[in-house]
Computed example of a mutant assay.
Amino acid sequence: MDNGSFALMQQLEQLYIDHHSWLSSLLRRKLSNSSDAADLAHDVYLNLIRKGGVPSAENCRRHLTQIAKGMVIDLYRRRRLEAIHLEALREQPEPLVPSEEVRALAVEALSHVDAALRNQPSKARQALLMHKLSGMGHRDIAAELKVSVSSVEKYIASGLRACTPYAVKRRPFR
């Protein structure tokens, strides 16, 4: 470990010592669930480790709060997707209901697609969702996003490429 990495780890350790209990308490109030709060609090610090940076002392709580809010939104989004998927499965006639394994794979694929889309630039994510979920045409999306039709085409292609590795492959009926 070089001196820069060692210094970063020391700064992260001090940030953790100084603010972890405050952050955990904040998340417990937001989530009303100490288990989820503890998981997300640790994920905030993992996020900082991945990014390789520590906020300045005067901005650390604001920065930690911002990361935590994003993770809470992601948690609720993931749970909403799971609930929608499970509800759709419950509404299917019995012979068409997939096995638990297929359900778990579908939920996992949805989580990966959600993460892949979150890693896309905002306009690319919006363009793909407008096209696929709302059925909007390229010109309408371009007008909405205030970009060219060519940009919309690139955004949608980029979003599709990001999601393709996680697409659930359907087996043919036999």
Rank of each mutant, 00 (worst) to 15 (best):
Y16Q: 00
K30Q: 15
P98R: 13
H20D: 05
C60Q: 10
P121W: 05
R174I: 07
A7K: 14
L160R: 15
R79V: 01
H138K: 10
A104G: 15
P172G: 05
R118A: 13
D43T: 15
C60K: 08
A41Q: 00
I49F: 13
E153G: 06
Y16M: 01
P165M: 10
L40G: 00
F173T: 01
I17G: 03
G137D: 11
R79M: 04
L129D: 03
L64Y: 13
A167H: 11
K132G: 11
H19E: 07
M71F: 09
L27A: 02
A37Y: 03
I156F: 08
P95M: 00
R139H: 08
R78W: 05
V107I: 14
I67D: 04
Q126V: 08
V149E: 14
L89M: 13
S122C: 06
R77D: 10
E153K: 15
A7L: 14
L23H: 03
Y166L: 07
P172V: 09
H138W: 08
F173M: 10
S56A: 13
A157Q: 15
L64D: 09
I17Y: 11
G4C: 15
V107Q: 04
N59Q: 12
R28E: 01
R103I: 14
D39E: 08
V113N: 08
P172S: 10
L15Y: 03
Q14M: 12
L81E: 13
Y45P: 00
I141G: 02
G4P: 12
E58T: 06
S150F: 11
M130V: 02
S134E: 15
A124W: 12
I73T: 10
V54I: 10
S148H: 03
P165N: 05
T164I: 06
L48M: 10
Y76I: 15
L145A: 01
S150K: 02
E13D: 12
S99E: 09
L23I: 10
V72E: 04
Y76E: 14
T65R: 08
A167M: 13
M1L: 08
A88T: 03
S34K: 12
E87L: 07
D74M: 00
L117E: 09
H19T: 04
N47E: 13
G4M: 15
R61F: 06
I17H: 12
E58C: 06
A68Y: 04
A106D: 14
A127Y: 02
D39W: 04
K169H: 01
R103Y: 11
V152I: 04
A57H: 08
H20M: 06
L133Y: 06
S32T: 09
G70Y: 11
L12M: 06
G52K: 10
P93E: 15
S99R: 09
W22M: 00
A127R: 02
R118E: 11
R78Q: 08
S24P: 05
R29C: 03
K132P: 00
Q10C: 08
P165H: 10
V54P: 02
I84G: 12
M1V: 05
R103L: 06
G53F: 14
S150V: 12
V149S: 11
